[in-house]
């Protein structure tokens, strides 16, 4: 054993006790990874801000510039826009599940995690738990801005929470898609490119901003059948206390379908990925 007072290095490997640990329990490992995600949110806040900024700027701009023309007054436009902003924000944030995983896989951090005696999917599951924290944080920003601009949910606190819950379920399901993307592509910028090239247009081409009834006939069915539109409709409904059960069930069905396909696919790809 080395106890030289040399200030540069004297790493003793002999440490009393604790040597026979078989690793953390599943829940402890998952929580540790969730804690790591929380730390990353704390240290790299600009990431979150970058993504949240887009829907927020749109919300402010559209409300005040176009709200009068689109809905008679900015406040009545905001009334239907803000639930859409919430959906858009959380949907865009799901990309982080993919970028976070990709950067871990590329950097080698992930290799270390996998060499530890912990439950194999813990890094994935922990990150997803941490991502929920990110979604909640972003949601509070959206609600904060909405309230400041005069948004009031007709469904009250209960309606707002129900709407939030539904969007979280959808965002969580969508996160699993990003796990598959994160494992499959080469680098973080490719993950981001898919966000910008596919997810962002898909989100815009929904009923977030405008009622599809005002659109040309050929476009309407496309917009109305966009899964994002289903989420926006149900969220709006819940937020204002006028949701149809079928609207909510549609969203749950879409989320369920995503989970059924992408959870097993993620776990399979995760088990067999190369790096």
């Amino acid at each position: 054993m080395i106890n030289a007072p040399s200030p540069t290095q004297s790493p003793s490997t002999t440490v009393p006790g604790r040597l026979e640990t078989r690793g953390a329990s599943r829940s402890a490992a998952t929580l540790a990874f969730a804690w790591r995600t929380a730390l990353r949110i704390k240290y790299v806040p600009e990431q979150l801000v970058d993504v949240v900024a887009v829907p927020l700027v749109f919300t402010v701009m559209f409300t005040y510039l176009l709200g009068g023309a689109l809905a008679g007054s900015p406040s009545s436009y905001l009334h239907s826009l803000l639930p859409g902003t919430l959906v858009m924000t959380l949907v865009l944030l799901t990309t982080f599940t993919g970028t976070g995983l990709r950067s871990d896989l590329s950097s080698g951090v992930h290799d270390r995690f996998q060499s530890l005696p912990v439950w194999r999917p813990a890094p994935l599951v922990g990150a997803l738990v941490g991502d929920l924290g990110r979604y909640l944080l972003a949601s509070s920003i959206v609600f904060g801005l909405g309230l400041a601009m005069g948004f009031r949910p007709d469904g009250g606190v209960g309606g707002a929470l129900a709407a939030l819950g539904l969007v979280l379920v959808f965002a969580h399901a969508l996160s699993w898609v990003w796990i598959v993307v994160g494992i499959s592509v080469r680098n973080v910028s490719a993950v981001n490119a898919i966000n910008i090239g596919v997810q962002l247009p898909l989100t815009m081409a929904s009923n977030v901003f405008v009622d599809p009834a005002t659109m040309p006939g050929w476009l309407r069915p496309i917009i109305e059948n966009n899964p994002i539109s289903f989420v926006v409709t149900a969220t709006r409904g819940l937020m204002h206390g006028e949701a149809q059960l079928s609207e909510v069930l549609w969203v749950l069905a879409i989320a369920g379908a995503l989970l059924v396909v992408f959870v097993p696919l993620s776990l399979y790809k995760y088990r067999t990925h190369r790096s």
């Binding site: 690793g23 950097s107 005696p117």
Partner: peptide
Amino acid sequence: LTGQYASVDIDLTGQENLVLIGRLLGL
């Protein structure tokens, strides 16, 4: 295992990196 590229999280502090490993090991 110490991988080919520094296998630590560069966004976290040194302390947090090691605490994370310790927690994962069940300490």
